[in-house]
Amino acid sequence: MSKFRIIIAICLIISSFNSCKDENKVTIKGEISNLDYPYVIVTHFSTDVLTVDTLKIGNKGQFNYRTSIDTLTIFTFYFNNYNSSAIVFADKGEKISIKGDATLPDLIQVNGNEINDDLTLFKKENEALLKQRAELLNNMKIDRMENTNQGILSENEKIVRLNSLNHELTQKAEDFVRKNPSKIASVILINNLFRDTENPTTLERVLKYLEGEASNFPLTEDLRMHCNKVKLSAEGAHLPYFQLVDTKNDTIRSIDFSGKYVVLSFLSASDKESKEEINVLKNEYNNLNKDSVQFISIYIDSEKYPITTISNDSIPWITVAEKKSWASDIVKTYNIHYVPYNILISPDGTIKRRNIPAHEVKKAIANGAKWS
């Protein structure tokens, strides 16, 4: 073989190699406004390894990200020092674009393949609703940070308004899923808007709409398993068994309180709302028959352990400081996503009320006693 032919062969091999490398590349270009930091953080998993990259941004919030992947991958872009984020679905060889406002992450538009395009279409069709919800959430966040109340609505009115907007949004999402049962975007919407629902029957209902590719998608199976798990601690279910060690180093078990009403309260030692919740629970507790009721407060702070402020609250009932915090078994078993959070359990071990307000505990127990 002549040298010329050898050179040509080598060039073809290199060209072929580079072509294969390019086929595995994904390019994601973005333009995000209202960025307070000169960088964007992007993360994704590759063969079970979390990759974290920092991207510099241009004067107009522009950035460009290029990496190699071999299958459909979920990228998370974090803005303003992790205060907001956007999810991108991308496969090898694709070119994806991101555009939007960092202060309105739910409205950030992602385009470049069917999943992103479908999700962006849903956002556009419900832009007014999503914008109202985002602005209300931002307002409530400022209230918590500054310990004030912004705007004409009271805190309770804002919560009622947020619940109303969330309900309307889930209705829109369910309608989308019903009309698009085989789209992967339907699975993503179910995961985003129905996964943390208090009522597992709602999640179960929307999952039944899925067909074809969407029904067989790995996330769908995860959602089905999650739904079955949530049922175990839903209203009407028998309380899942638990065993805990309280702050007196005594072991307590769920079966120890058979025949009594049990109020499980999940709290934070450093959270203002939890401290207010304790005061209301104390008032309720003082007006109940201690022989027929047992309160148990479970502190799940992640920043400090051991928790030293429990004793300062002078709580007259059982308290538990969970070492594993949000990763603890009881938090997972009872499907707890935020604090304060109360669960009322009847003397026969049935979960009567989830997320019951502290000031309704006495009334709910009184009504339960009448019904039994």
Rank of each mutant, 00 (worst) to 15 (best):
S274I: 07
S233K: 01
S274P: 00
V262Q: 09
T251A: 06
E235D: 03
Q243M: 06
L239P: 00
Y261V: 08
I252C: 03
I278C: 11
I255F: 09
S274K: 00
K229G: 10
F266E: 07
A237R: 01
K272Q: 15
Y241T: 13
K229E: 15
S268V: 07
V280W: 10
V230C: 05
A237S: 11
N279P: 01
V262E: 09
S254A: 13
L232A: 09
E277Y: 06
L232P: 00
A234Q: 07
K248V: 00
D250S: 14
I252M: 03
I278Y: 11
N279S: 15
Q243K: 13
A269Q: 08
L264D: 07
K260F: 00
P240C: 06
V245L: 12
T251W: 04
I252R: 02
L232C: 07
T247V: 11
S274N: 02
V230M: 08
K260I: 11
F242L: 08
Y261F: 10
Y241K: 14
Y261S: 02
P240H: 05
V230H: 05
A237M: 02
S258H: 11
Y241L: 12
V280H: 06
K275L: 15
A237H: 01
S254I: 12
I255M: 11
F257H: 02
K231D: 05
L267Q: 10
A269C: 07
Y261A: 02
S233M: 06
K275D: 12
D250W: 06
L244D: 08
K231A: 09
E273G: 08
E276N: 14
G236I: 01
E235W: 00
G236Y: 01
K260A: 03
I278F: 11
G259K: 09
V280M: 13
I255E: 15
E277F: 04
K275V: 15
K275R: 14
K260P: 04
F257I: 01
L244I: 09
L232Q: 13
F242K: 09
K260H: 08
E276Y: 12
R253F: 07
E273R: 14
I252Q: 04
S265A: 14
N249Q: 14
I255P: 00
A237W: 02
V263E: 07
G259Y: 06
E273C: 06
N249K: 15
E276I: 12
D246L: 10
S265F: 10
Q243H: 00
L239G: 03
V262P: 02
G259S: 11
N249W: 03
T247N: 10
K272E: 14
K231M: 05
T247K: 09
Y261G: 05
L264Q: 04
E276R: 12
V262Y: 12
P240Y: 07
A234H: 01
S270L: 14
E277V: 03
E277S: 15
V230Y: 01
H238R: 05
A237V: 03
K229R: 15
